[in-house]
């Protein structure tokens, strides 16, 4: 019990003293996961809408692949990103392994299927005839897609939350492709793992609490937007 209390005390101490290392780690976490989520939104929403609105042979296989991808194990993503970015790997010339960029790539790969899957489901749950109605109102195809995305905004926000929540709390891939380099690629999760393995439970708890608070506040903001949009 003391351990936890000590941890909480330390956490607030670190937070309120604006411990530069902790602040740095927190900002890097936000930056890496934020950019990764933005990339996944761009790819995921486009892919989800495209698959949802098109008819082609093998669509079911594609949809089940996307759904499987929603549960992609981060370590597997970490493994493959590492192999690709390895010095002798196909993308080794980029020389970005063990950099925040590599972490962004890995996290975007983890979040994209989540956003794609949720977008797909969100667009598909809209009434089929809505597309016809939008076209009948004189919309171009692009206008129709935009209106459909607006119609599906509530489940899409859930997609944003799920995507961001998935990557900010992810540790396997970040540690593999980022390397947990102090002051460079160390994020909240990787730092927590390291401090725990060193037996520095107080710092680990502090980092854990920051991570929880961060996830909570981001989701609170998104939930606020979602609830405000609810019908009166």
């Amino acid at each position: 019990m003391d351990l936890i209390l000590e941890g909480i005390k330390k956490a607030f101490y670190l937070l309120f003293t604006f411990d530069p290392e902790v602040i740095g780690i927190t900002f890097l976490s936000l930056k890496v996961s934020g950019i990764a989520t933005l990339i996944s939104l761009f790819i995921g929403i486009s892919a989800g809408v495209t698959v949802a609105l098109s008819r082609f042979i093998g669509k079911r296989i594609v949809v089940s692949l996307i759904n499987t991808g929603m549960g992609l194990p981060p370590v597997v993503v970490g493994l493959f990103v590492t192999i690709f970015l390895w010095r002798n790997g196909p993308l080794g010339f980029l020389e970005i392994l063990y950099t925040p960029t590599a972490m962004i790539i890995a996290q975007a790969i983890i979040a994209t299927p989540i956003v794609t899957g949720i977008t797909l489901a969100a667009i598909q749950q809209l009434p089929q005839k809505l597309q016809l109605q939008i076209l009948a109102l004189g919309a171009t195809r692009l206008q129709m897609v935009w209106i459909l995305i607006k119609e599906a905004r509530l489940p899409l926000l859930a997609g944003v939350m799920a995507g961001f929540g998935g990557v900010i709390s992810e540790v396997g891939a970040s540690i593999m492709v980022g390397g947990n380099i102090k002051g460079y690629s160390r994020v909240l999760t990787t730092a927590t793992v390291m401090e725990t393995s060193r037996g520095n439970f107080d710092i680990a708890i502090a980092l854990g609490i920051i991570l929880l608070l961060l996830a909570y506040f981001i989701n609170l903001i998104l939930t606020q937007i979602q609830q405000r949009e609810r019908p009166r």
Binding site: K129, L135, I147, E151, R153
Partner: peptide, 19 residues
Amino acid sequence: VLEYRRKLAMVFQEPLLFD
């Protein structure tokens, strides 16, 4: 087709209103 569709309006059995 777009120009033509913009001369028409269609009402379906379901209201199909936007949120």
